[in-house]
Amino acid sequence: MNHSTVTTEPFVIVGMPRTGTHYLEELLNAHPNVSSNGELLNPYDTIWLDRNRLLRSDRQLLELAYLHYPAATGKKHVTHVGCKINQPQFQERPGFFEELARWPRLKVMLVIRTNTLESLRSLVQARQSGHWLRYGADNDSGPPPQVTLTIEDCEAYFKAASDFHRQVADSFSPANVLPVEYESLLGAPAVCLQAVWAFLGTSVHPCPHRTVLQRQEVRPLEQTVFNFDELKRHFRGGPYESFFEAGKD
């Protein structure tokens, strides 16, 4: 761990699980002056070798993230440093979100997947298969498994996403929050990065033509959720109806 010898600008990537936070981090780390150091609250994240860090206080953890962060290979002058935290990790560590919101000058990138059902489906697939990320060399691993989702799990997850997005909006100044759409990140990453560089206040850096990380699921919801029709009937006419419309994946 290296102590920051110059003033760096702090940022954090937040979102629900399976919304593209890891992909955004990979794009950010292509910039020579930006260092995003994985999941601070994940005890298995290989960037953070000391699992005992999670025994520290919330303030000490944030000091680790923004003042004593790992040295990034090949980066001699880091001006912007950050990490990423998914919504369930905040739930598992009560009070940490509030401590994060107090960190000075913090910029927040909130990654949002328009169809929250896609996020839940992908999360359940990853839990069942044990495959959380797919890299270029893993193309022979086959498609993720089809899944069955309960009505109760869907309702709870949809509400959790809505509540979390509202919590972020209510806890930070609008000038310090940049919503990043998952669909735009996949379809037009260069455009998204232009907005990110402007938001962070760093120099413009070209978008990588290729990344090692690969998308795992490309099939529509109807082909990957066994009980899709049952769920569609249940949520028809309600606030989450659009998640079950054709072409909304």
Rank of each mutant, 00 (worst) to 15 (best):
Ser129Val: 07
Gln128Ala: 11
His131Glu: 07
Ser162Met: 08
Asp140Met: 06
Ser129Cys: 03
Ala161Val: 01
Ser129Asn: 02
Asp153Phe: 00
Ala126Asp: 01
Val111Leu: 13
Pro144Arg: 01
Pro104Ile: 07
Asp163Tyr: 00
Leu149Glu: 11
Ser141Lys: 14
Ala126Phe: 07
Pro144Glu: 11
Gln128Arg: 14
Arg102Tyr: 03
Tyr157Gly: 07
Arg113Gly: 05
Gly142Lys: 05
Leu106Cys: 00
Ala137Glu: 15
Val147His: 12
Ile112Gly: 07
Gln125Asn: 00
Pro144Met: 03
Glu152Gly: 00
Arg127Tyr: 09
Pro104Tyr: 08
Leu117Cys: 11
Leu117His: 12
Gln125Ser: 10
Thr116Gln: 13
Ile151Met: 12
Thr114Gln: 14
Arg102Pro: 03
Glu118Gly: 04
Gly136Lys: 10
Asp163Ser: 11
Glu155Asn: 03
Asp140Trp: 12
Asn115Tyr: 06
Thr148Ala: 13
Ile151Asp: 13
Gln128Ser: 11
Leu149Val: 05
Val124Thr: 13
Glu155Tyr: 04
Val124Ser: 02
Asp153Pro: 02
His165Leu: 01
Arg105Glu: 14
Leu133Asp: 02
Trp132Cys: 07
Ile112Leu: 15
Ala126Lys: 13
Arg113Asp: 05
Asn139Gly: 09
Asn139Trp: 12
Arg127Cys: 08
Pro143Ser: 01
Gln128His: 11
Pro104Cys: 06
Pro143Ala: 11
Arg102Trp: 07
Arg127Thr: 11
Val147Asn: 13
Ala156Phe: 02
Arg105Ile: 05
Asp163Leu: 13
His131Lys: 12
Ile151Ser: 06
Ile151Tyr: 14
Leu106Asp: 06
Gln125Met: 15
Gly130Glu: 06
Thr150Pro: 08
Leu120Asn: 01
Leu133Ser: 03
Asp138Asn: 11
Leu110Thr: 08
Val124Ala: 06
Ser119Asp: 06
Leu133Thr: 00
Ile151Ala: 09
Gln146Pro: 02
Thr148Val: 12
Ala161Ile: 05
Gln128Val: 10
Ile112Asn: 15
Gly130Ala: 01
Leu133Gln: 13
Ala161Leu: 00
Arg121Asn: 04
Asp140Pro: 03
Val147Phe: 12
Arg102Gln: 15
Ser129Tyr: 01
Val108His: 00
Cys154Ser: 11
Asp163Val: 03
